[in-house]
């Protein structure tokens, strides 16, 4: 039924598998997703780096209704997560009772299925987060 873009998934694999981000050597800020210039100061003097995947929940919401292909994952907790490297990302938080999520909670990256393209298409993987174990 759905046919996601295979080239797009393939091009973004470093970003969705490993949280590749940019670090600006001029203003010292990190940002995600990676791009050719720093979004804060416009500098091209940037490093491409990979996050260790540890962060803190700044805000969150719980989604009880979603489009058909995400319904199996409901309820879905979405968090605004600030990674220890400084940038923020919106991502699902899994392995958790939605009632126990709270702002300030430490989380860590986990690789999970993100999208399954019908019964014959690609299984797309990416980083979600779960409460930190240590």
């Amino acid at each position: 039924m759905f046919k996601d873009s295979v080239p797009k998934y393939w091009r973004l694999r470093d970003v969705v598998y490993r949280l590749k981000y940019i670090y600006c050597r001029d203003c010292g800020k990190s940002s995600f997703p990676p791009r050719s210039k720093c979004p804060y100061c416009g500098s091209s003097n940037i490093d491409h780096r990979y996050s260790k995947g540890n962060g803190v929940v700044e805000e969150y919401t719980v989604m009880y209704q979603s489009e058909a292909r995400y319904q199996d994952y409901q309820p879905i907790v979405f968090g605004v997560i600030r990674l220890d490297e400084g940038f923020r990302i919106v991502a699902p938080i899994v392995d958790v009772d939605p009632n126990s999520v709270e702002e300030g909670m430490r989380v860590e990256a986990t690789l999970r299925r993100v999208r399954v393209d019908g019964s014959t298409g690609l299984i797309q993987y990416g980083i979600k987060f779960r409460p930190s174990r240590r």
Binding site: D72, L111, R112, R113, V114, I123, Y125
Partner: peptide, 11 residues
């Protein structure tokens, strides 16, 4: 979990 499989657990 519903979003776990051999790939994710291997990782």
């Amino acid at each position: 979990a519903i979003d776990e499989d051999t790939v994710t657990m291997s990782w």
